[in-house]
Each structure stands twice: as structure tokens, then as C-alpha cells.
Computed example of a mutant assay.
Amino acid sequence: MADDKQGREKQAADEERRQRERALRTELERYDEAEPPIDDAELDEIEAELETVSFPATGAEIVDTVGRRRVAAGQETYAVEELLPEAEVETYESPAVVRSRIQRPTIAMAMKRIVEASETIPNVEYSASQRDAYEKTLRALQAVDTLDEDEGVRAITDWIVERIEEKGKLPGSRDVRREAGKLTRESGYEVRNDEWLGI
């Protein structure tokens, strides 16, 4: 490459792009750390309270038992009912599953909206694999959005809920990933084809 102004600018731009890509890869590898989790002691207490519930249990049963309990994540506090869908379409196999679902509040609130919106679909089949794919996509967006206060998570959640309302069915997980990848690229982040959002 020529050692002139244009060559130096291209080198600087390439280096900046590589740094952003490395940062994104690091965040995606550590996506469980994207937001402060709820304290383990509080999660232990919730699990103990759920010993009176017969599992598998619906979200409505869980919320009825511990919904008003408040938990802290970083500087924020949340009622458990803000984090779990009060719905019949999703069941929890054990207190440990409930714990894992509420551990990351931003993701939990997004999934609550999606699950509650899906209750409007007649005879909805909400598989565990589809739920897991939605959650993995939300976590990948959250890793990208560390500077944007989870704007991408809110945007893709809105998109999913709108599709449910418009089409009367859950969007496929590949469609959700594709839309999330598009949002990520529009935010100025490069997404490679071998990444979760690079579909």
C-alpha cells in the first residue's frame, strides 16, 4: 500500500474495523456478562420459595407464588412479575430453570413480552428450541448494544411482537436472527457469516 495520505487513512480505518470486530467477538463470547446479573443470594431465596410449587409449573403459577418479590441487578430493582410471563404457554421444569430465566433482567423482560404476545395465537406451539434461539439472538444483540442501552434488544422484541400481531404466528428463529443481523449492521457493526447474527 502506498505511503500517502489515502493509504494511511485506509490502514487506520482497517485497524478500527478490526478492533470493533475483536470487541464484538469478545462480547459475544462473554454474552452472559452483558448486564449485571441478579445476585446469587437473591436467586437462592427465590428458588427456596419455589419449593412449595409443583413442577413443571406455568409462568402464571410462578408469578402467583413469587411475582411480588423484588430483586436487584446493579442499580436497578425488579419485581419477579416484571421478568416472567404470566402465561400458560410456557412451563418451567424446576426452580433452577426459573432462576436462569430471570438472571438477566433485560433479556427476561424481552422474553416476557414475546411469550405474552404469543398467547394471542390460537393453538400456539412454543418449543424450547425456538425460545432458546430467540434468547440467544437477544443476548447477541445485547452484547453489541453495550453503548446503546439495549436499543437493539428492544427493537427486535418490538419486531417479533409486531409479526405475531400482524401474522398471527411466531416468526421463525432464522427470520429473527436475520432481522437482528440487519439491525446490527445498520448500527455500524460488521457481522461475519460464521457468527450467530451473520445469517
Rank of each mutant, 00 (worst) to 15 (best):
E125M: 09
V124N: 03
G172W: 06
G59E: 11
T146H: 09
R154L: 07
Y189E: 04
V53Q: 01
A128G: 05
V89P: 06
E88W: 11
E151R: 14
A41T: 13
L84I: 15
A72M: 10
E35D: 08
R163G: 05
L43E: 09
W159E: 05
E162W: 03
K182Q: 12
A108H: 11
D132A: 15
L138H: 09
K5A: 04
V191H: 01
R163H: 14
I114H: 10
G181T: 09
E82H: 11
S173E: 07
A180L: 07
M111A: 09
I156D: 01
Q130N: 06
R17I: 01
V89E: 11
T65V: 15
S127G: 07
T26S: 14
L28G: 02
E76S: 14
T137L: 05
I121C: 06
V98N: 10
A34R: 13
R25W: 00
L24K: 05
E76C: 06
F55V: 07
E16Y: 00
P85L: 08
Y189P: 01
P36S: 13
E151W: 12
S118L: 09
T52I: 14
L183Y: 08
D32Q: 15
E119F: 08
I156E: 01
A23D: 01
R113D: 15
R177N: 04
E125Q: 12
V124I: 15
Y92V: 02
V53I: 15
S100F: 07
I121K: 01
E61L: 10
D40S: 11
A60S: 14
I38W: 12
E15L: 04
I156V: 15
A57W: 06
L84Q: 11
L28F: 01
P105G: 11
E21N: 00
R18Y: 03
